[in-house]
Amino acid sequence: MTRAAAHAGHRWRNLLLCVFAVLIALAVLHLLQGPRTIPLSSFIDVIANRKHEDFDRFVILFLRLPRILAVAIAGAALGAAGYLLQTAMRNRLGEPQILGLNAGASLAVVLLTTYPLFPMPDMVMPLVASLGAGIVFGLVLMLSTVGTDRFDPARMVFFGIALSALSHAIVSAILILDEDTLEQLRFWLVGDSAGVSYAAIVATAPAAALGLVLACLLMPALSAFTLGETLATTLGASVRRTRLAALAVTALLCGAAVSLVGPIGFIGLMAPALWPHLHHRPSVSALLLVALSGAALLLAADILAVGLLAPIELPTGAVTGLAGAPVFIWMVTRKRL
């Protein structure tokens, strides 16, 4: 290994460790802070495995900890999904919220909650959400790439937004006529991490982990893309197949995230935007960095959602929307398409 490469590897490791430290700090803050004031002694009791009937213990172990885990997993999945989408499409604006995946997931869930075709166990919901997201995104892809060979970022964004609006119109049409479903889903629909159980985490974590591993495996092939598609083809990377694989992995990651915390937007846009030079050379380290930053960002958003208007808890998706939309505007004005 040359000295330069060793130096670069060193830099990556430091960067990753740094972001990881921030992530841990945020997680600890989230664990300590919350609507219920918990004395430090209770944390010690939990660590020492004492006082099993204490409510503090319950809050720490069964409300805050699973919530933090879920948020971190979903954030990492969303960040990685955004980065993957952006490298595969060569489109800095590639993001589940913008390209219609979130709207598709909501539509599918609302449809099946209002008109249950079969008695649905909770475990089916993630599948349904992923399916809806996949269908709408597929439609966006199909419509935006037909007639051209390349992915026009603006075209994709426009189709994503048009089809999102369409799904939202159908969702609100259903909800206006059905007060019960509205009450049940009003928070979930904007993305909410309250009340996530360990069961849900156990069900979705493998999917997210699988998605991350597959994404890592795809990175070398994707990095060839940056050389230009013609050159990539001559180098032997099958552009089409790689791209399709990347999209499937994105859908998997998004499905996992949506089923955990609902359709939360803009994490996939903000996390890569934190690191300006990341898109020049996609690598496994870059992907991991984005995933970690995504987790940290969503944790920060969740802390704000709980604390901003206490005792009223905001849906996490409202906070990411408030923070993410300006980032979108900034990216568009800087012409970083």
């Binding site: 998706g317 906070v319 408030l322 993410g324 979108f328």
Partner: peptide, 8 residues
């Protein structure tokens, strides 16, 4: 972008 912000 502004639309999203206002919707939030």
């Amino acid at each position: 972008g502004l639309s999203w912000c206002l919707s939030s």
